[in-house]
């Protein structure tokens, strides 16, 4: 593990644009992006190989949706910190993800500043 960047971030979003936007926006010095996944299944595979500590998670994705993915990730690693990032069409869905173990919610669209602030809070716990 990289000592200078102790926090390992995995980006889960089915949109390429969104994944790249998060990659570009993330500018915290102590966070290393370990990879991106386009759906829940990929996210679980990536988790097994790269052990992220932080996750940004879209909710509506093909194959396996965000809520199930949150549940599985938290099942594997109870300490993992997950930031749900979604357009807030339905608050109930976001709340469900938080119930399953996500730590916070960020509403799309967001600014770089909002993303970084949210990640800082996520790390601080």
């Amino acid at each position: 593990m990289n000592a200078a960047r102790p926090h390992r971030l995995m980006i889960v979003d089915d949109s390429n644009i969104m994944r790249r936007k998060i990659e570009r926006s993330q500018e915290l010095p102590n966070v290393e992006i370990v990879g991106s996944a386009g759906n829940g299944r990929e996210a679980l595979e990536l988790h097994a190989s790269s052990h992220p500590t932080l996750v940004t998670m879209d909710l509506t994705m093909p194959e396996m949706d965000g809520i199930e993915c949150v549940e599985q990730l938290v099942g594997r690693d109870p300490d993992i910190r997950i930031l749900v990032i979604s357009a807030l069409a339905d608050k109930a869905t976001a709340i469900e993800a938080l119930e399953k173990g996500a730590s916070g919610f960020l509403c799309k669209p967001f600014t770089e500043r909002q993303l970084n602030d949210a990640l800082v809070k996520l790390i601080e716990g």
Binding site: K91, A92, A94, L98, G104
Partner: peptide, 24 residues
């Protein structure tokens, strides 16, 4: 939904500043 939301605040893991937007 509201009761679920309020209960989230008891969860140690949930960051209260990061769930403002889902407050129903």
């Amino acid at each position: 939904t509201a009761m679920k939301f309020v209960n989230l605040l008891w969860k140690e893991k949930v960051h209260e500043d990061l769930i403002d937007t889902v407050n129903p």
